[in-house]
Amino acid sequence: MQNDGNIQLVALQQEVETLKSKVALLENSRKDQLPIAIVSGDLDKIIAAMVISLAAAAMDTKVRLFFSFWALSAVRDRNKKANGKDIISKMFGMMLPKSRNNLNLSKMNMAGMGPMMIKYLMKKKGVLSLDRMFGEAAALGIEITICEMSMDLMGFKKEEMIDYPHLRYAGAATFVSEANESSMQLFI
């Protein structure tokens, strides 16, 4: 009788151990989270990134956007100025689009005619404007991270970036570590 009880206890302990390891595995599994590395600064690609982000956020997926390189144009505020820039930084600042409303199309740009036509069509067909999309994104808690390195490289300063409630500055490792723990990742 005593022996039987011991065997049962051992079996139970073993079962608890397996369950523990299974729970640990579940806890370490990927989060319902979508980090997107946005490198392109074209109007069409920024629209695509925002549409996907909003759809994901509407499904309660945590969305984290990493704006880097040419995409920095989309997070510039044209009404803000930064002082103390060198000549190359000033040149970059002048030549690149000054806000999300000044972006070019990757195709059919036609010296600005293309973006005008797209914006007209978006309005006509009930597609949210980029301003509205950023507003919805803020309301849904979509996070925007600006890549510190590419901002520095292109001579942009924090003072000239948009006002956004969930804005932060970080590096590539932040994207990589968040991508690693997420169920989806995108690069645009």
């Binding site: 549409v51 909003l54 509407a58 009930g126 597609v127 949210l128 919805e136």
Partner: peptide, 13 residues
């Protein structure tokens, strides 16, 4: 009806 993708989803949410 006045909004295109992903508008209806956002409205539903």
């Amino acid at each position: 009806r006045g909004t295109a993708c992903p508008g209806p989803l956002l409205e539903a949410k």
